[in-house]
C-alpha cells in the first residue's frame, strides 16, 4: 500500500449520479405528486451537470495511536480530537486515509445567484443537487480507498468528517496538513470551512480488524437533519 502518497481521481460530469427521486425525497416530495417540482429538479440537475468538475484524492498514513476514552487519534505526530463516537469506530485501524472530494464552485455560485435574484426554489434545489453530487464524489473516493485496502487484504471503516459527531470543524487545518505540500483544489478559510463549499473531507480507517458500520442517525444530535433516516449509509 502506498503510504504518504497522494492519489487523485477525476471523474467526468456524466460519472456523477444524482437521482431526481432522491432530491425530491430530501424536499419531502415524490416526483409523481408534483409536476412542477419534477420539472424544477430535472432542469436543475441538467444545469448542475453542465459545469461540475468532480475531483478527489486521498493520502494514507499510519495511525500511531487511538485512545477511545479521550476520543483522540494520532497520525503523523498530529493529535486529532475526533470524539468518542469516531474514535470507537476507528478501533483497530492501522492506517488512516485522509481524503477530499469536490465538484468545484459552479453550483454554489449559480445557486447563490438564483437565490439573490429571487428564484428561491430553483436556487435551493440546485444547492441540494450540489450536495448530493459532492457526496457521490466522496463515495467514489471511499470506494477507491476500499479497493486499495482490499488489494492488501485490509478492510475499511465508514468515513468521518470534521464538524460531525462532535469532531470540531477547526481540526480541518490539521487534517489538511496531512496532504503535506500537495496542491489540492480545496482550500480552507480562517473558520476552517472549505472552498469550494461543495466539498467533503475526512478520514477513513483501514486495518485487518476494522468493521464498516453504517451511519447511525440515532447517535447524532441533529434531529432536524434532512438526511435523517433517509440513508442508512453513505457509500
Amino acid at each position: 500500500m502506498d503510504i504518504n502518497k497522494l492519489i487523485e481521481i477525476q471523474l467526468s460530469q456524466n460519472d456523477i449520479e444524482v437521482h431526481a427521486k432522491n432530491v425530491a425525497a430530501l424536499m419531502e416530495y415524490t416526483l409523481e405528486s408534483d409536476q412542477h417540482m419534477d420539472y424544477v429538479i430535472h432542469s436543475m440537475i441538467n444545469k448542475a451537470y453542465q459545469s461540475i468538475m468532480p475531483i478527489g484524492g486521498f493520502i494514507i498514513n499510519q495511525i500511531e495511536h487511538i485512545d477511545i476514552k479521550s476520543g483522540s487519534i494520532k497520525v503523523n505526530n498530529i493529535l486529532f480530537n475526533v470524539g468518542k463516537i469516531i474514535a470507537s469506530q476507528l478501533k483497530h485501524a492501522e492506517y488512516a486515509a485522509v481524503f477530499y472530494a469536490t465538484i468545484g464552485n459552479y453550483v454554489e455560485k449559480e445557486s447563490k445567484k438564483m437565490i439573490e435574484t429571487g428564484d428561491l426554489l430553483e436556487g435551493y434545489t440546485l444547492d441540494l443537487i450540489g450536495s448530493e453530487a459532492a457526496e457521490f464524489m466522496a463515495s467514489s473516493i471511499h470506494q477507491t480507498i476500499k479497493l486499495e485496502a482490499n488489494k492488501n487484504n485490509l478492510n475499511i471503516t465508514n468515513r468521518f468528517s470534521p464538524g460531525y459527531c462532535n469532531w470540531d470543524v477547526n481540526e480541518q487545518h490539521n487534517l489538511f496538513s496531512l496532504f503535506n505540500n500537495n496542491q489540492i483544489p480545496v482550500t480552507l478559510n480562517n473558520s476552517a470551512l472549505m472552498n469550494p463549499i461543495k466539498s467533503v473531507s475526512g478520514l477513513v480507517g483501514i486495518g485487518k480488524e476494522v468493521i464498516f458500520k453504517p451511519y447511525s442517525c440515532a447517535k447524532c444530535s441533529d434531529k432536524k437533519c434532512i438526511y435523517r433516516n433517509k440513508k442508512s449509509e453513505k457509500n
Binding site: 424536499m27 419531502e28 416530495y29 417540482m37 429571487g118 428564484d119 428561491l120 426554489l121 435551493y124 434545489t125
Partner: peptide, 11 residues
C-alpha cells in the same frame, strides 16, 4: 407544507 412551498410563497 415543506421548504419548497415556503420558498414559492416567499417568491
Amino acid at each position: 407544507i415543506f421548504i419548497p412551498q415556503m420558498l414559492m410563497s416567499a417568491k
